[in-house]
Nucleic acid binder design. Structure first.
Lengths: 341, 341
DNA sequence: GTGAAAGCGCTAACAA
DNA sequence: TTGTTAGCGCTTTCAC
C-alpha cells in the first residue's frame, strides 16, 4: 500500500497498548479529557504523538451515528457574496473538531433538494442553508431532520429552525430613500438573477418610490440571468432608452452598479450629475471606482462566522432555541455616486 | 430521535431482506451493477426506492478503507481565481459518486500542512492542491501518500504526481512583450501577494524587459499583502512618484489593474495615451471598464474541471501515469488599455 | 477513573 | 451469479 513501507495507520488500540490503558480510555481522552486521570493523559498524549495517531473519522461516525460535519449549501460558488460567507464559515470552524462540507446547488431547487437529502443521510452536525425557498419536499426533510438548521442571508422567510440574515426589503427601501433624500426623483431599478432576496429588494424599491408620480414599474429592468458587469451596462441602456429622464438607479448588486457606471463613462454621462448610482453588497471595489459608488453594506463574512457559531452552540446545548432569529442589519454607505444634487 | 417517528434509517440488510437477496448482493448492486442478475437488480431497485435507502458513507469507508472524497486545498476562498477553480471542480463531480471536500489554508504553509495531514488521514480518493511550495513535511506526506495527487495552477514546480496548470513566467513574459510590441518602452510591474506564481510572473516581466535600458527593478512595486483594487491605486501612485515617465504597467492580477485604471481616472491620466495597463486573469469585468483593460486569460474553470477528471480517470485505472504534466496555456486578450501608441 | 463486551453498516475474500 | 464469514476502528453501554 504505502510506498514508504510504514506498517499501517495506528489505531486507538495501538495507542492504548503503548500508553498502557484500554482503548476506551483513549477514546475518552479525545472526547472528554477531563474524565481521564492526569497520569493516563500524559501517557496517552505521548503515545499519540509517538505513533502519529489520528482518529478515523469513518469509524467514529459509524459507531456514534453522527459526524462532525456542518453542511453548508450555497446557490453559487462564483459570487462574491457567498465567497465571503464561506470564508467566514471556514474561519469559524478553524481549530474546532468540526468541519465544513460545501454543497453548490447552482440556483437549482432540484439540486438543492438532492443535496439536502444527501447531506442529511450523512448525519451531519447541522446544515447551514441560504434562504428559504426550498422545494416542498426539501422543506419537509429539513423540518423532520434530526439536526439543527441555520437559514442564512434572509430574515424574511418562514424559518425552519434558526434564522440569520437581514431584511432585503428594508435594506433596499433604505437605499432608495437615501437617493430620494439626496434629491433624486426619477429612480430606476436594475436587477439580475431575481431570486427571492432580489424580489424583496425590488419590493423595498417599490415601497420607497410608491408616492413618486411614476407609473409603477416603468423604470424597473430585471432579468433572471446571472449578474455580471456586462449586464449592468446592458440593463442601464435599456432603462435609459425607455425612460431617458431617469436621474438615479438602484442596482440589485454591485456588479450591476459597476457595469452601470462604466456604461455612463462610455456615454460620457457624468455620475452623479446626470445619473446617480447605488449598488448593493458593498464589495471592496465600490470605494475605488471613479467616482466611488454608494452601496448597501451587508455583513457577509460575519454571517458565515455567526452561522457556524450558532450551530456549534446549539449542538453544545447552549440553549439556542429553535425559532431563534438574528438580524445582522445593513448600512448605507454613501459615496460620491449619490452626492446631493 | 427523529421527530417524525420513522423507525430508523434502513440499512443494506433491510433492502436485502425486502429484495430477497443477501446484503452482499445489494452492496454489489451499487458498486458493480453489471455483476448482478437482471432479476435481482429489479427487485433491489424497487426495495431501495420503497425504503428510501441511502448508503451509509461512514460504514462504507470503514469497511473498504477508502472514501470517495476528493480533497481540494486552496489558499483562499475570497479570490475570484480560486472560486472559478472550485466551481469547475464542483461541476465535474456533479453526477459522480465522488464528492469534494474543501480545505482553505489562507496562504499559510503551516495550515496547509495541517490540512494535508488531516485529509490524508481520511483516505481520500485523491488530493488536488494549488501549486508546489508545501513545507518539506507536507511534501513528504504527499509523496508517501497512498492516493493520487494533482497539483494545479502552475507547471513550474517539482511535481509530486500529476501537474496541471500554466507557466506564469511565460504568460507574464508574453504580456509584457505585448506591451513592448504596442510601442511601450518604460514598463512597470505592480504585484500583490507575492506567492510563487506571482514571483514567476515577476520573472517573466524581467525576461521581457531585460534589454530595455532601465535599471532593473526600478519600476517594480510589490507587496506581500493581499491584493485589492485599493492596493492597485496605491502601488501605481508609488510607481508614478518614483518613475513618473513610466508609460505602461503590467499588473500581477486584475484587481490591481482595475485599481490602477481608477487611479488614472482620478488623476485625469488618459489610458492608454498616458499610461497603458495590462492585468492578469481576465476577470469578466475587465472587458467592461472604460477603457476595457487588456489581460491574460487563464482557464480557471477548466483547471478545476480537468483536475477532478484527471483524478477520476487516474483512480479508475485509465492509465494516467504519475509524472503527467498538462499545460492549459493562456491567452493575451488585447483591449483598448494597451492600444498601440 | 477505568475496562469488557457488543455492535454501528458496510465490504473483502473466499466459497459455492 | 450469489452467499458466508469476518472484520474495518471506533463508541456505547454497563459494570467495577
Amino acid at each position: 500500500m504505502c510506498p514508504t513501507g510504514n506498517k499501517k495507520t495506528p489505531t486507538l488500540a495501538d495507542v492504548a497498548e503503548a500508553a498502557n490503558v484500554s482503548a476506551v480510555t483513549v477514546s475518552r481522552f479525545f472526547r472528554h479529557p477531563e474524565k481521564v486521570s492526569e497520569a493516563a493523559r500524559g501517557r496517552i498524549e505521548q503515545a499519540v504523538s509517538e505513533l502519529g495517531y489520528a482518529p478515523n473519522a469513518a469509524a467514529s461516525a459509524l459507531a456514534s451515528r453522527r459526524t462532525n460535519i456542518i453542511g453548508l449549501l450555497v446557490p453559487s460558488l462564483t459570487n462574491n457574496v457567498f465567497n465571503d460567507v464561506l470564508s467566514g464559515a471556514f474561519d469559524e470552524v478553524q481549530g474546532t473538531p468540526y468541519s465544513i462540507q460545501i454543497g453548490n446547488y447552482r440556483y437549482r431547487p432540484s439540486e438543492e433538494e438532492a443535496l439536502i437529502r444527501t447531506f442529511l443521510h450523512q448525519k451531519p452536525l447541522g446544515l447551514v442553508i441560504a434562504g428559504g425557498n426550498q422545494t416542498p419536499a426539501a422543506a419537509e426533510m429539513l423540518r423532520a431532520a434530526d439536526c439543527r438548521i441555520v437559514q442564512i442571508m434572509d430574515t424574511e422567510i418562514d424559518g425552519i429552525d434558526m434564522v440569520l440574515g437581514l431584511s432585503h426589503t428594508e435594506a433596499a427601501e433604505a437605499a432608495v430613500r437615501h437617493l430620494r433624500e439626496r434629491g433624486y426623483q426619477r429612480i430606476g431599478f436594475l436587477g439580475a438573477r431575481m431570486d427571492p432576496r432580489s424580489q424583496n429588494r425590488l419590493a423595498g424599491y417599490h415601497r420607497a418610490v410608491a408616492d413618486l408620480d411614476d407609473p409603477t414599474d416603468s423604470r424597473v429592468f430585471t432579468t433572471p440571468e446571472a449578474s455580471s458587469t456586462e449586464l449592468g451596462g446592458r440593463l442601464l441602456s435599456d432603462l435609459l432608452a425607455a425612460m431617458p429622464d431617469t436621474d438615479a438607479v438602484f442596482c440589485n448588486n454591485d456588479d450591476l452598479a459597476a457595469g452601470a457606471l462604466f456604461e455612463c463613462q462610455r456615454r460620457g454621462m457624468r455620475v452623479p450629475d446626470r445619473l446617480a448610482i447605488c449598488g448593493f453588497n458593498d464589495l471592496e471595489m465600490m470605494a475605488q471606482t471613479c467616482p466611488p459608488i454608494s452601496s448597501v453594506r451587508i455583513f457577509r463574512h460575519e454571517m458565515g462566522r455567526r452561522s457556524v457559531r450558532l450551530m456549534i452552540e446549539a449542538v453544545a446545548g447552549a440553549g439556542v432555541e429553535r425559532g431563534l432569529r438574528e438580524d445582522l442589519g445593513f448600512e448605507i454607505v454613501e459615496r460620491a455616486s449619490t452626492r446631493p444634487r
